[in-house]
Simulated assay, not measured.
Amino acid sequence: MDRGGREVYAGTTPAAVQLKSGAGFFQRAKYTIKFTKAGFATQTIPLEANVNGWYFGNLFFGGWIGMLIVDPATGAMYRIPQKDVQVALAQTTAFDLNPTAPTGLRIVSLDEVPATVRTLMVKVQP
């Protein structure tokens, strides 16, 4: 999500997403990245643009027009320092087979059952 709370991208990982470094005139971009997976705790990572060091090169090359108008308007005065974002999701201890229909039956793969719940399982003989 961006600083206005709008969803910028939703998909599965791995993914490459281009984000704008500017959010308006003299306003840097701020994002919140949210990683979710069933059976795992949600991870939220803040991502914020910083002032680009080359922005001050306008003093020598771009002049005041570049420094006060062009770069702030285009977002070129900011950069997002993180090129890659990675998180390790931790399995949750709670395991809800089907939160939308708690009285129903849902068959799941053993891989979807957290290890802490697997130790409590009892094999049923036919």
Rank of each mutant, 00 (worst) to 15 (best):
R28A: 07
N98K: 10
L89D: 06
V51R: 07
Q27V: 12
A94T: 12
K30E: 13
N52H: 15
T116F: 04
Q82S: 14
A16W: 02
D96V: 14
P126I: 11
V124W: 09
D84F: 08
Q27C: 07
D111N: 13
Y55W: 14
Q125F: 07
V124D: 14
P81Q: 12
F25W: 05
V87W: 04
Y9T: 05
L105H: 09
T44C: 03
L120C: 07
V17G: 03
F95Y: 12
G57F: 07
R3Y: 07
L120R: 15
P72F: 08
N52R: 15
T44F: 02
V8I: 15
K37P: 04
T100H: 11
Y55V: 14
G4V: 03
D84A: 10
G63T: 06
A88R: 12
A41F: 04
P126K: 15
Q18H: 04
F26G: 05
G57R: 03
W54R: 13
I107W: 10
P81T: 11
T119I: 10
T13M: 04
Y55E: 08
A76F: 06
M121W: 08
F40Y: 15
M77D: 06
A115F: 05
G4W: 06
A38G: 02
L105Y: 12
V108M: 13
L47Y: 06
A10R: 11
G11V: 02
V87L: 06
Y78R: 06
Q18L: 11
T36Y: 08
A41Y: 10
